[in-house]
Nucleic acid binder design. Structure first.
Lengths: 346, 346
DNA sequence: CTGAAAGCGCTTACAG
DNA sequence: CTGAAAGCGCTTACAG
């Protein structure tokens, strides 16, 4: 009996009176092992609290049994301000990994870091899940490198034509359309957009265009003078709203590209003496927990983060196993709260 | 030249015209390697984009270079409602791990799961970080098992005498005292406590006792009839506040054991027609982002989650390296907002 | 300063 | 159904 250290398959083999490979087979449920032998081995393994050494197993099998989650932090915020939107997704990703028998490595990264060549090459992970906002143009090049290296990955974000790799995202255009419909329906006519609606932020751009399309069905249009760039952060939303006010063009509603932007904007509007929703209706995107807490509570677009997490992992596992997989858009829904509770005029 | 597959140290050795062990030494910066040889090897490694195979390295060195973070979910909430309090801590933990050259495995667990015997034994992680609330009495037994197994771990939570293992926590008693001081100072006399102030929730108990001690210095006392059990969740806070109102004993302030409890309670009070802070002052604990968003904004106790994350990792690394380490309490501060903005009467 | 040798604990053909 | 053998890619004494 080995006194010190973890038991190995050889320890079990000695006790069971079989060879070490037989122990390995029994433990992995190989069908060729005699049922009685197998039961004896399993009993001993349980008794010794034996666990297969992952490093040895992975080395031999040339795989890791591990996925890596890379969460990109907004480089503009110095503190660790991960968008709370990702928290439930994180939960469903970890659960999905457990279901697939995969371990999950996690790492917070700056988009500028040299993250793209690390996990795959060192055999630490079989596949990558990429989460987080950031300038897509900067992102894209690294995604291409990943594809060239043969690294398996899935990304949360906009589903775009000709994009490198596979991504899962919500149907941003439809989400934007829901917002446009709603705002037009309550009689809003001049709708401002707070968010960088360019190809640097394809998700925001899709939301913008979706809203635009819905408005045009009502004979309305987005006014470029009412669009102010913003990244997904409260401070950025506050600044954008302030800029919008400074411009002096009239508006009766604001579609913020994310809840964090909306929250910052609401603070700026309140400070400026504007009443929400009477002077300006406000809509966000994401339905983070704080959206319920604001005064008034924020109307916003809900993304199914729980399904999203599962889908990210399921899709990545397909890729890892060499099976076909494709990008996917998840449906969105609008949740109407008091920030757009105007008397219906349209 | 190997066409397919990742390059190995042997590939580099061939190209550099040295033996494979020399490559290994050069890569790890072993001082005995000739500087010119080393530079040549490093250049080739970079060129081939070589990364040490973690599985092989870990197997040989009998360690993993990995820490595991176990986040306990509240079993009472069916969804993935991780307390947002832990998000910034998660960020600082991942950064601290990166600084120590450790990978971080993450897993969301039920306290009831059989988590305690998995990571160490399978060599997946050298040490464990345990986060999350839960019934300490149930927890304690598993911690003891961990200690018996020789598993290295640190826990975020109350620092208790005779506890199994090491924990890092905030100074809950002092945090409670700050609340007691403040409430007494603004003239509150009957202070309710929402939270399970028992040895099942030692953090809450410490907060309760700290508040009690501060009050007694003002000739005041906590009234057991004004204490209602609650776990750290909005729904639980709402229910506790409702129960408090049902009891019918007068109170002029509520100390909620966490912000989530406070937020739920505020909703219940507002629904019941109570004005905050005029009819009842409310204080929380944690300073989650939503605490700023409530109306009125919530006075609460700030824990230094960023330092906490670093300390958890630093302490665990000491343990992993066989160095001495000890439990630690971090200072707390009170941030006063409008939920206690009464005209000063005391 | 460098190389030959051993071995970490598994898994997987290959025989029998 | 089972065992002997090889080998995954490293690191680390041990010689020289």
């Amino acid at each position: 009996m080995t006194i010190k250290g973890k038991p190995t398959s050889l320890d079990i083999a000695h006790r069971a009176g079989v060879s070490q490979p037989t122990v390995s087979r029994a433990l992995r449920g190989h069908p060729s092992v005699n049922p009685e032998t197998r039961d004896r081995i399993l009993a001993i393994a349980r008794e010794l609290n034996y666990k297969v050494d992952k490093n040895a197993s992975n080395l031999r099998r040339q795989q890791s049994g591990t996925l890596a989650l890379l969460l990109f932090e907004d480089p503009t915020t110095d503190q660790s301000h991960i968008n709370p939107f990702f928290l439930p997704m994180l939960g469903s990703i970890t659960r999905a990994c457990a279901r697939h028998g995969q371990d999950l490595l996690i790492s917070f990264q700056q988009l500028s870091d040299d993250w793209h060549a690390d996990y795959g090459d060192s055999h630490k992970a079989d596949g990558l899940i990429l989460l987080g906002y950031g300038d897509y143009l900067a992102y894209q090049g690294k995604l291409r490198t990943l594809v060239e290296q043969g690294t398996q990955f899935v990304r949360w974000g906009a589903v775009l034509p000709d994009q490198p790799g596979i991504s899962i995202g919500c149907d941003n255009a439809n989400g934007g359309a829901l917002v446009g419909e709603h705002l037009a329906g309550i009689g809003c006519r001049r709708i401002a957009f707070l968010g960088d609606a360019s190809s640097r932020y394809p998700e925001f751009l899709d939301r913008y265009r979706g809203c635009e399309a819905a408005l045009s069905a009502h004979g309305l249009a987005m006014d470029p003078r009412l669009q102010v760039d913003a990244e997904s952060a409260e401070g950025s939303g506050h600044a954008a709203a302030t800029e919008l006010l400074r411009r002096g063009h009239p508006f009766d509603a604001v579609f913020a590209a994310s809840d964090l932007i909306a929250i910052g904007a609401m603070q700026a509007f309140s400070a400026a003496g504007l009443r929400i929703p009477d002077d300006v209706a406000v809509v966000g995107f994401d339905d983070i927990p704080a959206a319920r807490m604001t005064t008034p509570a924020l109307t916003t677009v809900v993304q199914d983060t729980l399904t999203a997490g599962e889908l990210l992992v399921d899709t990545l596992m397909h890729l890892v196993h060499g099976e076909p997989a494709e990008s996917l858009r998840l449906p969105t829904t609008l949740v109407v709260r008091d920030s757009t509770a105007k008397a219906r005029a349209g």
